[in-house]
Design a protein around this nucleic acid. Structure first.
Length: 417
RNA sequence: GGGAGAGUGUCCCGAGUGGCAAAGGGGGCGGACUGUAAAUCCGCUGGCUUACGCCUUCGUAGGUUCGAGUCCUACCUCUCCCA
């Protein structure tokens, strides 16, 4: 496992980050000298990044930890174009205002795992809108466009798959790869950046940049990608009932984040410990040796460590403690998600259906009815059998709340206000 | 500009002869079994309603019909072929 000279590649390799690399030897030598300046681009397609992006953020983290310099590139410009990779249909073209808003909302998350500053290994943040929006069409065609073979572009997965499925692909999307390739060259010139990393679906785009660099006279550039994140049962990772697993706390609370990791499949625990925590390998091996139900201890470690890294140690411990009280003691943890209801409403008596809807556990009265029929709803840990049940002050627990649950995992406290 | 085809339950795929709240999957949710796991089995998966039932849904808008996802007309969007 220690085939590399550089700490950077050794760490990535033993933790399972590496899928493909354009030139291991060259990159290894560069990183061993602490001269690897590397970037990952993040498109501003949503107000928050998700755990798929987290993987590449962790690569930047290890890059920095091993004495090299990371660059986070906001795709302010490329998002205006839209990446066709892995998409069956054209992405809706986003408004400039939306992109700007997303950009502002995303950028804060990087400082959780990277140290920014002006030092030699401090991270820097750039935005490709800075140069892409200023390009001149004809100049661009003459300087950059002539290096692109349309024949080859047509064979790239992102394009070929679309064509094979007879799905339309517009010219603007066709140019996404040109923009991304140009970014790499621009960064190489501006900052001495030599390496671009990304998900395996970005391989084609990244390699294009490597080629373009050679033709346009930059020093040799390198490409490095991560494997596609899947769960042991083969599903794409990061999707839950609520949607994606977002990194921003206001879209996916630390408690939910903790729960997400706590509920991963057994077979994934070690893999995720390596990818999503900074626990030492020896520690991970110890956790990985656990068998049967002891694996739950490893899952708790995974949940707490991953949450601590992103949301801070305190939030992680709170989430862990909330879970412990709720699941292991069956007690009511004050820190569970809470919804306020007016005391007047409670005084008059409120129907269970309405309350479950209000708590956000079900989407409609109808769904509440169905869940009651299936035995899925509980009030203060007692199954609801009568959909006409009315809750009043007398339903309050000694703690002064009403605990509503759907299934075994979702709980909300109602608090009179 | 001409020709051919397609748009179905707001998660996705996808059947659909004029009587359809609309087959079947996948996904999701809930239950049982467990370890807050996986696998398996069972139930649910448009809204309102205690209920009979009512309302809203098949690209959009009209029309024919007792009755339209299904027939007709116009329009919109997409794909392919020709120019």
């Amino acid at each position: 496992m220690t085939a590399f000279k550089s700490d950077f590649l050794n760490i990535l390799s033993e933790r399972g980050f590496i899928h493909q690399c354009s030139d291991f030897e060259g990159l290894d030598a560069l990183a061993a000298r602490g001269e690897a300046i590397a970037y990952v681009g993040y498109d501003c397609t949503a107000p928050s990044l998700h755990i798929g992006n987290y993987l590449t953020m962790m690569m930047l983290h290890w890059l920095q930890a091993s004495g090299n310099k990371p660059i986070t590139l906001m795709g302010g410009g490329t998002t205006m174009v839209g990446d066709p990779s892995g998409k069956d249909e054209s992405r809706a073209i986003r408004s400039i205002a939306e992109i700007e808003a997303n950009k502002a909302s995303i950028r804060g998350v990087f400082s959780k795992v990277l140290r920014y500053g002006a030092g030699p290994t401090d991270a820097i943040m750039l935005d490709n809108a800075e140069w892409l929006t200023k390009l001149n069409w004809i100049e661009m065609l003459r300087d950059v466009g002539r290096h692109f073979s349309v024949n080859r572009m047509l064979t790239m997965d992102s394009v070929r798959l679309r064509l094979e499925r007879e799905q339309e692909m517009s010219f603007i999307e066709f140019n996404y790869m040109v923009c991304q390739a140009y970014d790499f060259v621009e960064l190489a010139r501006r900052t001495g950046c030599r390496l671009q990393m990304g998900g395996s679906d970005q391989w084609g785009n990244i390699v294009n940049g490597v080629d373009l660099g050679r033709r346009m006279g930059t020093p040799p550039l390198f490409a490095l990608t991560t494997p596609l994140l899947t769960t042991a049962s083969g599903a794409k990772m990061g999707k839950t009932a609520q949607g994606a697993v977002w990194l921003n706390a206001d879209q996916f609370s630390p408690y939910d984040f903790w729960q997400y990791w706590r509920n991963v499949e057994d077979a994934d625990v070690v893999k995720f410990l390596k990818l999503f925590t900074v626990l030492p390998m020896a520690e991970i091996e110890k956790l990985g040796a656990l068998k049967g139900s002891e694996i739950n201890e490893a899952k708790k470690a995974l949940a707490t460590e991953a949450t601590a890294l992103l949301h801070g140690r305190e939030a992680a411990n709170t989430a862990a403690e909330t879970a412990r009280q709720t699941f292991e003691e069956g007690a009511i943890a004050e820190t569970l998600p809470t919804v306020e209801i007016s005391s007047g409403e409670l005084e008059a008596g409120a129907g269970v259906l309405t309350l479950f809807v209000k708590a956000g556990l079900v989407a409609s009265n109808g769904e509440a009815r169905r869940q009651i029929k299936g035995g899925g709803l509980r009030v203060n840990d007692t199954a609801v059998t009568d959909e006409k049940m009315v809750l009043t002050r007398s339903s309050l627990t000694p703690e002064g709340v009403i605990k509503l649950s759907m299934g075994k995992k979702k709980h909300v406290l109602l608090k009179p206000a």
